[in-house]
Amino acid sequence: MPDRQPDPVEEGRFPGYDVLRKRSSMSWNDRTREVVDRRLAVERGPRTLSADAFRCLEAVCAQIVPQNQGPSFAPLAAYVDEGLTLGLGPGYRNAELPEAPEAWAKALAALDATAQREHDAVFAALDDAQQKSLLQRMQKGELSGPEWTDVPPKLFFSQHVLTDIVAAWAAHPSAWSRIGFGGPASPRGYVRMGFGMRDSWEAAEAHPGQEAKAARENRRVR
């Protein structure tokens, strides 16, 4: 069984929808249950990154994908670190970047170094606006200094910060519930195909004034 109990998001477009309620339905086969269960049971602490780097990464993740602390919280930093632990890339590497574990370690250290220089504190200790500003400058390639020579900030931001963190989030059931994605679908797929057509095992969208109806339908999704 998954670590956490269904935790329907009561706000948002799909009130009351929790994709994990479908876990025992015909939409999930054994293999799917296995991989998602394992994902939800990810080890929370760092394994490859140093404790400092991991703290920095957690702060970066909180900026890239803002989340509420709560049962539906997806530990994105843990997923990134776990990926580095297993040490394989996406099937290609930009010639200007080192291997992913090295690139992440250097980039997080560089972020902390820049934060120290400019604000006299590590990245995780900066306030929200300072963190945002640093990341924005990183995305635009406006950060410079010796710490960035091995990891071009702009390239690293697009190739790793955005991709790795966001992909980890989009792979998490909490994300599926939030965006109203049907989630796993095998052996049961879908029947109703046209515009505005929803199968009874899909998330119901709350149209203005219809929130309660959507919530009712979402609680019946199996």
């Binding site: 015909m26 052996p187 049961r188 879908y190 029947v191």
Partner: peptide
């Protein structure tokens, strides 16, 4: 069909 009668809903 995929899932046969077990997947009757579909």
């Amino acid at each position: 069909m995929m899932g046969g009668w077990r997947n009757w809903k579909q």
